[in-house]
Design a binder for these strands. Structure first.
Lengths: 119, 119
DNA sequence: TGCGATGTTCGACAATCATCGAAACTGCGT
DNA sequence: ACGCAGTTTCGATGATTGTCGAACATCGCA
C-alpha cells in the first residue's frame, strides 16, 4: 500500500467572519507568539524555522497552531516547508485597527523588564 | 486589644508606567472579565456585587484581582463595599487607543455564538 | 452586642497551557 | 535508495487558570 495515501490534514483556518476576539487576545498574550506576529509584520511571508524565538521546534509548532486557529496567521505548504503570513487584511476587516493598535502598544516602552527575545 | 489593628492589605495597583501589555491582553481574553470592563465603561464606578455576570462571589473576586493587577481597574474601599472603576486615563496614557479599539472590536458582530452574558 | 450584607481568602479540583524530547512524515538532493 | 532538512504529532510534565464552597473579615444597623 502506498504510504502517500495519508494526505496532510489540510491546515484549517477560520473564515474572516469567524475570527473570535477572545482567541485573538489570548494568542497575543504570549511573548513568543507576539514576537512571531511582530516578525511577520516586517516580512510578508516566512518559513517556520526562521523566527527569532528561542524554543524547541515542537513548541514553535504549537504556537503556530494557536496563531493559525485564532485567525492571526495563514500557513500554506510549499515543498517540505510551511510558509507563514499575517492575515492583515482579514484582521483589519474583522476588527478594524486592532492589530495596529496592539502592535503599537507593544512597541511602547516595555513595562519593567521585558523578556529578552525582543525583535 | 482592638481587632481593628489588622488593616486590610491595601489593594496594590501597578503604576501607570508599569502596566504590562501581556497582562492586559490576558485579562481581556476572558469573557467574564470583558463583561466587567464593558460594564465599567458605561458606569464610572460600581460596587462589586452589581455586575451582570453569573459566577460565584469568590470567582468574581478572583477576576477583580486579575483585572486590578493588570492595571485595567482601580478599586477603593468605601465602608464595607469596594468600588471599582476603569483606569481609562492611565490606560490611554500607557497604551493609546488600546482600550477603545479592543472594546470596539468586542462590540463587532460576535464570531459565531457568543456566550450568553452579553451586556 | 449580635446580625446581615458585602467581599475576600483559602483549599480543592478539573481543564488548559507552555514546554520538551522522541518518533514520524515529506520532499529534495545525492 | 538513502539520508538529510524542515515540521508535525504524540505523550509527558509542571505551571497556571477558572470555578466552586466554606470560612473569615469588616461595616452598618437594630
Amino acid at each position: 500500500m502506498p504510504r502517500s495515501t495519508r494526505r496532510r490534514p489540510a491546515l484549517a483556518h477560520p473564515a474572516t467572519e469567524e475570527i473570535d476576539l477572545f482567541d485573538v487576545l489570548h494568542a497575543l498574550s504570549d511573548p513568543t507568539r507576539m514576537t512571531i506576529v511582530r516578525t511577520l509584520r516586517a516580512e510578508p511571508e516566512r518559513a517556520c524555522g526562521t523566527f527569532p524565538v528561542d524554543v524547541a521546534p515542537s513548541t514553535l509548532s504549537h504556537h503556530f497552531k494557536v496563531l493559525r486557529e485564532s485567525g492571526l496567521i495563514r500557513q500554506r505548504e510549499e515543498a517540505n516547508r510551511r510558509l507563514t503570513a499575517l492575515r492583515t487584511v482579514d484582521l483589519e476587516q474583522r476588527f478594524p485597527g486592532l492589530l495596529d493598535t496592539v502592535l503599537a502598544a507593544h512597541a511602547q516602552a516595555p513595562a519593567v523588564a521585558e523578556d529578552g527575545q525582543g525583535l
